[in-house]
Structure formats: structure tokens, C-alpha cells
Write a protein that binds this DNA or RNA. Structure first.
Lengths: 127, 127
DNA sequence: GTTATATTCAACCGCATGGTTGAATTGACG
DNA sequence: CGTCAATTCAACCATGCGGTTGAATATAAC
């Protein structure tokens, strides 16, 4: 278990909600790259790409390491794992198509976040 | 393979980026519910919950069915599956921690979207 | 037919997003 | 040191988000 807080799941899924950022993740998963190398395929400003990287970094999906004049960007897949684990709960619904209530009873131990009654958004952010 | 377009992956991940919406998905996965039943645990207006449902519906993660005076909301997990498949690509990076380049060579057949050079956002939306 | 209930619509608000451009920072190098 | 290159910062803009409230719609119930 990766133990991701509500707020960081927010940031991870938000980071993934943009096609450019998903493509960047694919990119840096193949090999670590500089910001310039990452930006090259897209026709947007370097500053825009830099902002995308900030979003990815906020979600802790990439790490940036200063390497001389460059910044090497590399993937950090741990939070992706957390996202996938969140999604894994729903596997039963697309595989077996079991009755939802019965399925609930079977998997009732699944932790699952609780954001009811105003707890939303103010969850303790991961350190 | 679920064959989700770039734009709909956007909408799916966006829908998941809010804790309230994730909780709603969990909720309706256990059993189909009315909008009122869904809204009850949260201290926000019914209209706000209705908007959340619209976001989920835009991502095709729920289906709404008129049932008399109510609308029954039920889960549609197919697009969640697509999201999970997108994430599955990264499993190798959190399990083996292989060298990224080597991993790339091994998995080079993975389709992967391409949003470079202005193709972003204008992808053919799923019908 | 009128009224009550469930849900959505419309307008609005404050704030975040994704993009731009131009200036600032930081480090390599002649 | 001066300059160039890589990257970020700051200000700005248009748009979208998540929430509100109040009106509108649709169906049920009396």
C-alpha cells in the first residue's frame, strides 16, 4: 500500500488530467531528460512546459535534479501506483459485473477515503 | 483494451481529481442511488452535487436513469478501466525499478497517446 | 388542478488553470 | 569578468472550476 492522502490523490489525478502532462510522463519514463528536451516536441513556450512540470512535481510524479546548468527530470512512479491502487477497487465492476451490493460486502475492508461533511479538500497533505 | 481517446482520458482523470467525486463513485459502486441520497452525506448544496454528477457523466463514469420523480445514478466502470490501463504502463517502474531506457526498449510496442505539436485537446472525442 | 418533491438551470463569485511575454536567475565557458 | 544558455519567475489574460442562491422544470400525490 502506498498510503496516499486525499489531497495528494487529488493532485495526482489532476496532474494526469492533461494530455501534455501524461505525454511528458511517458517521455521521462523512457529516460531522464532536461526541461528543454522535454519541451522540444510541443509548440508551446518553455515557461508553459515548466508550469506543467511544476504540476507534476506538486503531485510528486517527477523529481528534478540540478545537473550543472540543466535540470534533469525523472519519473517518480510511486504516486502513480497509489492512483492505480485506488482504481483497482473497481476492477470487479468491469470484470465480473457482479451485483454491486454483493461486491461491496465482499470488499468491505477496502480502506477508501472519507470526505463527507466538509472534510473535503482540507485533508492533511502528504509531507 | 478500452480504446479511450485523449480527450476522454482527460475528462476521466479530471473527474477523479476531486475527492467528493471519488467518494461519490465509491458510493454508487455499492448500489445505485438517487441524487438526493448521494448528496445527503455532504454538506453542500444539491446543485453542487448535481454539478459533480455532470462532471462524472461527462467522463462517462456514471449513468443516470430516470425512475419516476428520481434519477437513479449508477456506476459505469469502463472508463475507469481505461484509466487503469493507462497507469498499468508504469507498473514496471514501481515494481522492478528497472533502468528506464532498458524498460522502454522492452515495452516499446505500448501504444501511448501522442499529443505533440498542437494535437493536444483537439483529439477526437469519444461519441 | 394545485401542491409538494426531486433535480436541474442560470447567474454569480472567488480562485485556479493553462497559456502568453519579458525580466530575472543560475551556472558554464571564453 | 562578461556573456550565453537553461530555466524559472512575474504579471497578465481568457477560461473553467467548485461552490452558492433562487428560479425553472418535471413528476408524484393529494
Amino acid at each position: 500500500m502506498v498510503e496516499l492522502t486525499v489531497a495528494s490523490l487529488d493532485s495526482v489525478f489532476h496532474a494526469l488530467s492533461d494530455a501534455t502532462r501524461r505525454a511528458i510522463l511517458r517521455d521521462v519514463s523512457r529516460e531522464a531528460k532536461t526541461v528543454g528536451q522535454i519541451a522540444e516536441p510541443y509548440n508551446m513556450s518553455l515557461a508553459a512546459v515548466s508550469k506543467h512540470l511544476q504540476v507534476l512535481e506538486r503531485a510528486d510524479l517527477i523529481r528534478r535534479e540540478k545537473k550543472g546548468n540543466f535540470r534533469m527530470v525523472q519519473l517518480n512512479a510511486d504516486n502513480l501506483r497509489a492512483a492505480q491502487e485506488w482504481l483497482a477497487y473497481y476492477e470487479t465492476f468491469w470484470t465480473g459485473q457482479l451485483d454491486a451490493l454483493q461486491n461491496y460486502l465482499e470488499t468491505a475492508e477496502t480502506p477508501g477515503e472519507d470526505v463527507r461533511n466538509g472534510n473535503s479538500g482540507t485533508g492533511t497533505e502528504k509531507g
